[in-house]
Design a protein around this nucleic acid. Structure first.
Lengths: 186, 186
DNA sequence: AGATATTGCAACTTTCAGTTGCGTTAGTTG
DNA sequence: CAACTAACGCAACTGAAAGTTGCAATATCT
């Protein structure tokens, strides 16, 4: 057992630099613009080192994205259902309009691995949101809904839809309207 | 006036073959799988000819997708509100799940033309859907809503959301639920 | 038929992904 | 501190696909 971490690693430092370089590129030019040679240069690392850690370009991009997505989605806790929902919905709107968010969440034009990652990301968010609702139920603010995840989904979808498709305005009025509809159905 | 089309063109025929070849590939394997050499082969045309018409690969794909997008969205008229809405919602689901539709509607910052086209596409669909509702109101099936376009938007968004983000199931049950919620709010 | 635009063809260059062998550096252990 | 070893740097590769160029062949219009 005393397997004292066979880690010979100066690795973690290098890995962080690499993934950060990838994220930097994605945020500005999108996932398609990520070139391994460029990443190596920006990270001050040799191309070979990258390929030693990630079998191919797609896996590299995926790892970077996952590292970003893993920063836990905060669960607002303001003590009031409407406030919590508004904070969460605002957070969704922020990522949906940020260039990094758009790059990460744009379907197609990416790798199958990224496609597989999106559902996990959203389930994470849904879990956070249902937690909000569960707390409100505990406080006696409202009745427990049949399918809280679905309600959250129907609330979040229009935000992403406007951001990625219609280009419609995503302002306070819109977000409040969505929250109102969710609360009304409780 | 007698500008008798300086067209020396045997071109239109060739152009159609090229774009059709691109569409064929997209429909099966997606936009990423489109290789200029392959397209040239499938279209029975030389690679040079393609590059004489389209400056680069992206513009070629874009041209093919835009040509497909111009086919008008049909407005179902089955004489019943629920039936019309279901048909329309089903049509949205079909395009959202087809690889051609995904190519059209995926938000990739790589083509401003596509970005500009998406809102128009959806407004066209919204117009068709509000037409459906307007007819139902005329028939006395329901009251006229404040903002029919918004209702349609909230109905369509979850479909596209599941198709492009969560990968959630888009079946009859889901579509009917969406339509039910729309009808209920009339 | 003759002029001209369009296409075919082949041999390029360029870019980027991914690989390989070997030398070098930096942690780990005694 | 010395030796061992994993991780890294370096350079020169291969391979696939994008994009280019000059010239010959062919279709279309007048």
């Amino acid at each position: 057992m005393s397997k004292s971490e066979p880690s010979h690693r100066r690795g973690q430092v290098v890995e962080d630099k690499i993934l950060q370089a990838v994220i930097d590129v994605i945020a500005v030019e999108g996932t398609m613009a990520v070139k391994v040679d460029d990443v190596a240069a920006k990270a001050g690392v040799n191309k070979t080192t990258i390929y030693r850690r990630y079998p191919n370009r797609d896996d590299l991009v995926l790892a970077a994205v996952l590292a970003q997505a893993d920063i836990a989605v905060p669960i607002p806790n303001l003590g009031d259902l409407r406030s919590d929902l508004l904070a969460m919905v605002q957070s969704v709107a922020d990522t949906a309009t940020s260039s990094l968010g758009r790059a990460l969440l744009s379907a197609s034009a990416t790798s199958p691995e990224l496609d597989a990652m999106r559902p996990r990301y959203w389930h994470q968010r849904f879990a956070a949101a249902t937690e909000i609702i569960a707390r409100a139920v505990d406080r006696g603010e409202c009745a427990a809904p049949d399918d809280p995840a679905l309600l959250v989904e129907l609330t979040v979808a229009p935000i992403h839809f406007r951001a990625s498709q219609t280009g419609g305005d995503i302002g306070d009025a819109f977000l409040q309207m969505l929250v109102d509809r969710l609360v009304a159905s409780l």
